[in-house]
């Protein structure tokens, strides 16, 4: 019973935190865009516009809900639901911190540690494509359909390279559990040092998976009006936009846990703090890393133009995948060498 209660609380906290971070990512995006473009950004709602996400959310709720007559009503509603659901499901396996020891019991700050955690993330993210595809198809609009086709082909192509980058990572770590991968990176033994190429491939693919610039073709406003969500209004549009920000948050969390040590930080043993203190500090540092990557996502978005469809496919299939294969081979040689099975 107690176990369920704790898990329930944890689920609620993780869900609310991802919603909160996603909401404030929209604010951060606008403020960072303003900073990069010499503007002020939103500053009307509350001090420094801090209440802007609430105002936006309220606006989304109050808007008239329009379902086009030619749209398939059921699928039209299903699209954003799938998108939102898959976005909030991925947070489950992320270890937010080492864990707290209270009265002799150890409570890990993670909803569940599945031993195939990474595969779970991939599975759930792949379902996310259906949200876009169904939404774009059900809208019965050519622009939506084109956006949906772009989104699905892009996400499927980049998932391959992403998976291959992960294979190389698993070869060095020997586990699929995200918690174990993070634990192995104790101190400064981060995976970025053993997988430099893998990090680059993984981050680029994460950009493509999140549909962020330079891979924001599915919704590029100058070509496809609004892309797959052209016909959406009110909170269903809000769900699509919101899911994108949750995805960005989760991607940042996964990048930092897989390659940048998660809640580990240098000189963790030399500080001489109690394990609980270290754990809490680790969580803070983990969030710091996540926010850095969210900032990175935004920084890139407001700096460079986007690719064309064929260039995107070219990059995915003819650059990223061969690079990922080379990375796997290189990692194989490295692992053999490390285990002493390879002699020069």
């Amino acid at each position: 019973m107690e176990f369920f209660l704790i898990k329930l609380v944890l689920v609620l906290i993780v869900f609310l935190v991802s919603l909160g971070v996603a909401a404030y990512s929209t604010y951060a995006e606008r403020k960072i865009a303003a900073f990069l473009q010499d503007r002020v950004g939103p500053d009307r709602a509350g001090p420094f516009g801090i209440l802007q996400p609430l105002a936006d959310g309220l606006k989304m709720f109050m808007k008239e809900e329009i379902i086009p007559t030619h749209a398939d009503k059921f699928l039209f509603i299903l699209g954003p639901c799938i998108m939102m659901m898959t976005a909030s499901m991925t947070g489950v396996i992320i270890p937010w911190g080492h864990g707290l020891e209270i009265n002799g019991t150890f409570y890990p700050v993670q909803i569940t540690d599945i031993n195939i955690g990474i595969l779970y993330v991939f599975g759930v993210v792949s379902i996310g494509v259906y949200g876009i595809m169904i939404g774009g198809w059900a809208s019965n609009n050519k622009y939506s359909l084109m956006g949906a086709i772009r989104a699905s082909s892009q996400m499927i192509s980049y998932e391959l390279a992403m998976g291959m980058a992960i294979i190389a990572l698993i070869m060095t770590t020997g586990t699929l559990s995200v918690r174990e991968i993070v634990e192995q990176q104790h101190g400064i033994h981060w995976n970025i040092f053993t997988q430099p190429l893998g990090v680059i491939i993984f981050i680029i693919c994460a950009f493509a998976e999140c549909n962020r610039t330079p891979f924001d073709l599915p919704e590029c406003e100058t070509e496809l009006v609004g892309g797959y969500h052209t016909e959406y209004s009110s909170m269903k549009l809000g769900f699509y936009l919101f899911a994108e920000y949750i995805n960005m948050f989760i991607s940042s969390a996964i990048i930092s846990s897989l390659y940048f040590g998660g809640y580990n930080f240098p000189f963790i043993d030399q500080l001489g703090l109690s394990p609980n203190m270290l754990s809490m500090l680790g969580t803070l540092i983990f969030f710091g890393k996540i926010f850095f990557f969210i900032f990175f996502f935004m920084w890139v978005r407001w700096t460079i133009p986007r690719f064309r469809y064929d260039q995107l496919m070219h990059l995915g299939w003819r650059v990223m995948i061969p690079l990922a294969i080379v990375n796997i081979l290189g990692t194989g040689v490295y692992v053999l060498f490390k285990n002493g099975q390879l002699h020069f």
Partner: peptide, 16 residues
């Protein structure tokens, strides 16, 4: 041209 290729920032720089 920058905006249509997805780079919004340059647009706001020069519009000043």
């Amino acid at each position: 041209i920058g905006v249509d290729s997805g780079a919004m920032t340059g647009f706001l720089y020069v519009f000043q």
